[in-house]
């Protein structure tokens, strides 16, 4: 520090400057993160006309009309079910495949291990949107457009590498001795996996599950490319289609629909937030 800076004012600035900066950034972070969601929530409770005319941020009256309208949409339950079915399958199946693969990578030394591990990484750098063009073409040829199978196949294929990479890290961090101890205790591979590896890697399994859930629940490009029947749409797809399907835009309904599609996944996240955040911060999750 130079001499003229160490006067009382400079010292005060030095002490307070960083604090002010931190609070400023933190405030920005909160506003930036929360505003879109809060605004959507507020708008969803407003009267459609009020949105256009009112100059107030809060609804004049908190109305549930928009939610009633969304829930009574013909097809809403179908879209919801589609989303749930696809998400459940596209979470469980990739998890199983990934657990097996990750265990193999973490615990065995074998030929081509490194190459195979890299092959698991490559799909993560392929932009998924780019695949919609050939997928539509190929799946039409196979007659799979507008089927659950095609959604299962594509969703699972894009989730397996992610889950595998997360779990390799978690399995790898479990000391080998513990598994050896289980071997001496008479546990075979399945028992070791079930009673030792999975419980110990549980935060990783949860994280992998939540991230698979997220990919499947929010997936849009694949449905867009592979589905064109109304009754095969998932929630994000229907949310996108709302723009065209509503003559005059009912902003409140639009917002209510958005909240309803986002809410289930956010609840899952909030429930398991600790494990997910810790896993990402610990560097175990790398896109």
């Amino acid at each position: 520090m130079r001499v003229q800076e160490s006067g009382p004012m400079a010292l005060l600035f030095q002490r307070l400057g960083p604090k002010v900066l931190i609070w400023f950034t933190l405030t920005f972070l909160v506003i930036w993160t929360a505003t879109p969601i809060i605004w959507a929530i507020l708008s969803s409770f407003k009267d459609p006309l009020e949105i256009y005319e009112s100059k107030s941020l809060l609804p004049e009256v908190w109305r549930l009309d928009a939610y009633r309208k969304v829930l009574s949409m013909p097809g809403f339950s179908t879209w919801l079910m589609n989303s749930v079915i696809v998400t459940v399958v596209a979470t469980i199946v990739p998890l199983i495949l990934a657990i097996l693969a990750a265990y193999g990578f973490a615990r065995y030394a074998f030929k081509f291990r490194h190459v195979l591990l890299l092959l698991y990484l490559i799909p993560r750098i392929i932009p998924r949107v780019s695949l919609i063009v050939p997928l539509n073409d190929l799946m039409s040829d196979l007659g799979l457009i507008n089927t659950y199978s095609v959604l299962f196949i594509t969703y699972i294929a894009s989730a397996v590498p992610l889950a595998t990479w997360i779990l390799v890290g978690f399995f790898g961090s479990i000391p080998k001795e513990i598994e050896e101890s289980a071997t001496l205790d008479g546990a075979n591979m399945w028992n070791r996996l079930r009673h030792v590896m999975l419980p110990m890697a549980w935060p990783g399994v949860v994280t992998a599950a939540v991230l698979c859930l997220r990919e499947a629940w929010n997936e849009f490009s694949f449905v867009l490319a592979l589905v064109n029947q109304t009754d095969m749409r998932t929630l994000p797809y229907q949310l996108y289609m709302l723009k065209d399907s509503m003559g005059i835009q009912d902003y409140a309904v639009y917002n209510a629909f958005t909240i309803l599609t986002v809410l289930p996944l956010l609840l899952v996240y909030l429930l398991l937030e600790r494990k997910v955040v810790d896993s990402i911060v610990s560097g175990a999750v790398k896109s």
């Binding site: 000391p175 001795e177 513990i178 050896e180 101890s181 289980a182 001496l184 205790d185 008479g186 546990a187 028992n191 009673h195 030792v196 419980p199 110990m200 549980w202």
Partner: peptide
């Protein structure tokens, strides 16, 4: 065998640690 790091199952109670081998 007793391991250097003890290799106790961290998610199991002391009792479960001791009985795991017998259960298996």
């Amino acid at each position: 065998m007793v391991f250097q790091s003890y290799a106790l199952y961290p998610h199991m109670s002391v009792e479960d640690n001791m009985s795991f081998g017998l259960k298996m």
